[in-house]
Each structure stands twice: as structure tokens, then as C-alpha cells.
């Protein structure tokens, strides 16, 4: 078995904090991610494979205990699951979509997932993101792709307040540094 290296293994210092608290930042290391592109009759087939209907409304999610489908575009979803479950998911989707044009791609390693939680998570993101994340607009079933500072991200709200930020692996270090800097005024705690 080889040593696996997550995007931020070289910068995360668990337990460190640079302020009196307010925000907790976690590197989730690996989150299973499957990019699904499908349309037409394949939509129903994909729903059967997943066990729930794909969310058709823009920037919404649907899911169950094992996976969550995030709308990325009118024929594109990111299926998020625990790391290690993606191969099975890919197998199920590929089998169900055998006759429908589709693309089922493992992109688990393409993105880091940084979790920002705490009462000040929203104001921290507001320092670099033009999206309106007010709960009235951006509720629990929402997802959005946007920019935080100069990094493209997918923002997924989490239970209990806060967000999972999906960011291209090569940008993860930049976004991490940016979040630490932006969160400094609220106090930010790195959790392991």
C-alpha cells in the first residue's frame, strides 16, 4: 500500500488556530466524486441506478444516505459519496446507461474538499465570493459553482451551518491560504 497524499497534507496543521475562534476549517482530504453527463432517456436510467431522481432544477441537489447528486449544468451532475464508494457508483451508472450516450468519470482526485463551518463561515466567504449565500436564497438543498477570490469552486451547504468547498486540487493550497487570511479577523481554527 502506498502513502496517499491529499492536496493539503503539506500545509494543514491540525489544532492550530490564529484567533479566538468563530470558524473551523477542515481538509476533508478525499471525497468520492463522479462526474455524470447524460440527457434524454438516460436521465431516468441514471435515477434508477442512483435510487433517486437526478435534480433537474439548476443549482439544486438530491440524494440519499449513500450519495448526493449536485446539479452542475443542464446535462451534468457531480455525484458525491464517501471516498471508496465511487467505483461501485460508476459501475452501477455505467451499467444502467449502457444504451444511452453518457460520460461517467471518476473525478475524486481532481478536487479537494475544504469544509468551513461556524457562525462566521458566510461572512468569510462573502469576502471573496459574489454569490448571495443568505439562507433565504441559498438553502439546504442548493449548490452553486462560482468563484472564491480567484479559485473556481462548487459550494455545498452542510448541516448545522457552513459549507463544503470543492476546489480543483491544484488550487487547494491557494484557497486554503486565502481562507486562513480571510478568516483571521473572525478567528479561525484548523481541525484535523
Amino acid at each position: 500500500m502506498t502513502v496517499e497524499c491529499a492536496p493539503l497534507d503539506n500545509v494543514v496543521r491540525p489544532g492550530e488556530t490564529n484567533g479566538p475562534s468563530g470558524i473551523a476549517l477542515t481538509d476533508r482530504r478525499f471525497v468520492g466524486q463522479v462526474n455524470l453527463r447524460v440527457r434524454g432517456s438516460g436521465l431516468t436510467a441514471a435515477g434508477h441506478a442512483l435510487g433517486y431522481a437526478l435534480p433537474m432544477a439548476a443549482n439544486t441537489t438530491a440524494g440519499d444516505a449513500t450519495s448526493r447528486a449536485c446539479w452542475l449544468g443542464p446535462d451534468e451532475w457531480l455525484i458525491v459519496c464517501d471516498d471508496g464508494k465511487q467505483a461501485e457508483l460508476i459501475q452501477q451508472l455505467s451499467a444502467a446507461l449502457a444504451i444511452d450516450p453518457n460520460a461517467v468519470t471518476d473525478v475524486t482526485d481532481a478536487r479537494a474538499v475544504l469544509r468551513i463551518a461556524g457562525a462566521c463561515a458566510r461572512p468569510v466567504l462573502a469576502k471573496g465570493c459574489t454569490l448571495d449565500l443568505h439562507p433565504r436564497v441559498f438553502g439546504a438543498d442548493r449548490v452553486a459553482q462560482s468563484l472564491i477570490a480567484r479559485a473556481q469552486v462548487m459550494i455545498l451547504p452542510i448541516e448545522g451551518g457552513g459549507y463544503d468547498l470543492f476546489v480543483a486540487r491544484s488550487f487547494a493550497g491557494y484557497l486554503w491560504d486565502w481562507l486562513l487570511d480571510a478568516g483571521a479577523e473572525y478567528g479561525i481554527r484548523v481541525e484535523g
Binding site: 497524499c5 492536496p7 497534507d9 503539506n10 469576502k127 477570490a149 480567484r150 479559485a151 480543483a168 486540487r169 491544484s170 488550487f171 493550497g173 491557494y174 484557497l175 491560504d177 486565502w178 487570511d181 480571510a182
Partner: peptide
């Protein structure tokens, strides 16, 4: 805060370290 290292992202490969 767009100063210093935060002016532009520095993209790093998995072997960068």
C-alpha cells in the same frame, strides 16, 4: 488582501512538495 502571495493563485502539482 490581493497582495503578496494572494495576488494570483499558485497552482501546484501533486508532486510539488
Amino acid at each position: 488582501r490581493e497582495t503578496g502571495d494572494l495576488v494570483v493563485p499558485t497552482r501546484k502539482t501533486p508532486m510539488d512538495s
